[in-house]
Amino acid sequence: VTRVNRLNDLAQLLDAERLPLVVTISGKVASENPINCEITGLKSVIVEERVNKLYLKKKEEEKCKCAIKQKEKCKRATKPQKTCNDADYWTLHSEPSDSWTLHSKSISCNTKEVPWYLDDGTDHVHVVGARGATDFGYTAVRSKFDE
């Protein structure tokens, strides 16, 4: 592996080697026109915004899947009968019938990206298609709740 220490040495490598080259580069994220993020308050080059609707849903009493003629027998029993085909029957019926459970539904998901590069103080290298890379990670995450 040919090793160079700074980004401005990368040009020499490109001149000497046959393309395409696979390289590993490190530096600080920078952009001429960063995005001003509303929630995090950060200037960023890639922003993914998700909106989810949160709601409570009244838990409905589940219907026993046993045949009606077997239902009474199931209710009196301390454990599911062999005649009951619904293995979750007792778990479902042990919950209070008026309980509420929290649900979330995705409303939208938008991603914005501006041209950006990595800079190590000696030079910079534009990065394209980073979101499709394995293990690409957003380094800051913040949520806001609007009632």
Binding site: S31, P34, T40, E49, V127, A140, S143
Partner: peptide, 26 residues
């Protein structure tokens, strides 16, 4: 029966100034 609580907005960002290492093809 539903009670709407509100909207949760989540931002995931790659901020300016973050130190990053990338592997890619030139």
């Amino acid at each position: 029966d539903k009670k709407i609580l509100g909207l949760k907005r989540t931002e995931r960002v790659l901020p300016v100034g973050a130190f990053l290492t990338v592997v890619g093809e030139v």
